[in-house]
Computed example of a mutant assay.
Amino acid sequence: MRAVSSSPKVGIIVFPGSNCDRDVAHITQDILNWPTRFIWHQEKDVADCDLVVIPGGFSYGDYLRCGAIARFSAIMPAVKDHAEAGKWLLGICNGFQVLTEAGLLPGALVRNRDLHFICDRVHLRVETNQTPWSRNFHTEQVINLPIAHGEGCYYADADTLKSLEDHQQILFRYCQPQGQWDATSNPNGSLHNIAGICNRRGNVLGLMPHPERAADPQMNQAHLPESHSLDGLTLFRSLLN
């Protein structure tokens, strides 16, 4: 994967209906001091970016399926080229849905098990720290991130799930505070309690929880124990290692 300086250049894709783009920019630009620019979905060039983020929200109003229209946007060929070049690509919530619809990650995100929108904080187990996204965590470390989605149930066929397991592409699972994962710790019915996966090369990550909402010290320390308040920031900072 392509090496970068201590201040990676960040591009945040903005679709009609994106609503978490400013949240991500606040972390990358204001907290981390990384050069950051917004990229309107009709642009066709992300060559200057080390990290491209597809943020949460409701791209194109989630018509048809979440992410189904965004995959055809003018910017997506450049995003695919970016990923194929080994550069970092992060899809958060709706961004994860876009990545699966575009074929950049396997599987699909479907309606939550109970057909309700969920807005909560959840415990996640870090399955491996051998990726650019998780190097600052410990394997099997339990972290805490917010979720807010109605279609966050990860689905894939049996062969795809086996491949994800075999190649350590599952980075985060929903779990109990002590780390075990089961149906009671699964908020949306995702198969294998999957909350986030990467591609085989490890440079593309999609996850339903929102790391950008657990990355500002002033916002989080008032509501969470210090050990969990900046778990999202740890994910972003892992890219520097």
Rank of each mutant, 00 (worst) to 15 (best):
R2L: 15
S7W: 03
F15P: 06
F15S: 03
F15L: 06
T28A: 01
Q29S: 14
D30C: 09
I31V: 15
L32W: 02
T36D: 01
I39T: 06
A47R: 11
A47K: 12
D50T: 08
V53G: 00
D62H: 03
Y63M: 10
Y63W: 07
G67V: 02
S73C: 08
V79G: 05
K80I: 13
D81W: 00
A83D: 06
W88F: 12
L90A: 01
C93S: 04
T100V: 14
P106E: 12
G107K: 08
A108D: 13
L109C: 09
L109Q: 05
R111I: 14
N112A: 09
F117V: 08
I118H: 15
C119M: 11
D120K: 13
L124N: 01
E127R: 13
N136I: 06
N144D: 06
P146G: 03
H149K: 03
H149Q: 02
E165F: 11
I170Q: 04
F172C: 03
L191S: 14
G196I: 06
C198M: 10
M208E: 04
H210A: 04
R213F: 03
H223E: 12
P225G: 13
S229E: 08
L233R: 07
L233W: 01
L233H: 04
T234V: 14
L239P: 06
